[in-house]
Amino acid sequence: MAKATVFDIATYILKKQGDMSAMKLQKLVYYSQAWSLVWDDKPLFQSRIEAWANGPVSPQLYLSLDHK
């Protein structure tokens, strides 16, 4: 089975929760990764997450989001 990507996780969250700010989506993606590491002892996706001034960010996801 293919691993999920950061985009798969973001799409799933948006389908379940509806529209939200880019910052909130980044944080929920981060929490999803963290819980996967805690529960399953393995990452949910392979994209890097960085500590930015306003919270955790997946640069790959950040570049794909509209930041208006």
Rank of each mutant, 00 (worst) to 15 (best):
V29I: 13
Q33F: 04
T11K: 13
A4L: 15
S32W: 12
F7N: 05
V29A: 10
Q60T: 07
N54W: 06
D8I: 03
E50R: 00
M20C: 03
Q26G: 08
Y31T: 14
L25C: 04
F45A: 04
K68W: 13
W35Y: 12
S32D: 14
L63N: 04
G55L: 02
L65K: 01
W39M: 07
M20P: 01
T5P: 06
L25H: 02
S32A: 15
Q33R: 01
I13N: 08
T11N: 14
S36G: 13
F45G: 03
I49W: 07
G18C: 06
E50K: 11
E50F: 05
Q17T: 11
A4W: 10
W52G: 02
V29Q: 03
Q26R: 05
Q60N: 00
F7G: 04
V6L: 02
K27W: 06
K27N: 10
W39H: 09
I9P: 00
K16M: 00
Y31P: 13
E50W: 05
L28A: 08
S58T: 06
G18W: 10
L63I: 08
Y62F: 14
S36K: 05
K3S: 12
P56R: 10
K68R: 12
A34I: 15
F7M: 06
W35K: 15
Q46C: 12
A22M: 10
L14M: 09
L65T: 01
A10C: 13
K15E: 15
K3G: 07
M23L: 14
A51P: 13
Y30S: 13
I13W: 08
L25I: 08
K27Q: 12
Q46N: 12
K3E: 09
P56L: 10
G55S: 01
Y31A: 05
K16W: 03
G55N: 01
I13A: 09
I49T: 05
T5F: 02
L63P: 02
F7E: 02
Y12V: 07
M1T: 08
S58N: 06
V29W: 09
A53K: 14
M1D: 09
M23G: 10
A4V: 12
S64N: 11
D41Q: 15
Q46L: 12
H67K: 13
I13Y: 06
D41V: 15
M23P: 09
L44Q: 04
E50N: 05
A34N: 13
K27L: 03
G55Y: 00
V29T: 04
E50T: 01
L28D: 07
M20T: 00
W35E: 08
Y62C: 02
D40Y: 15
K68T: 12
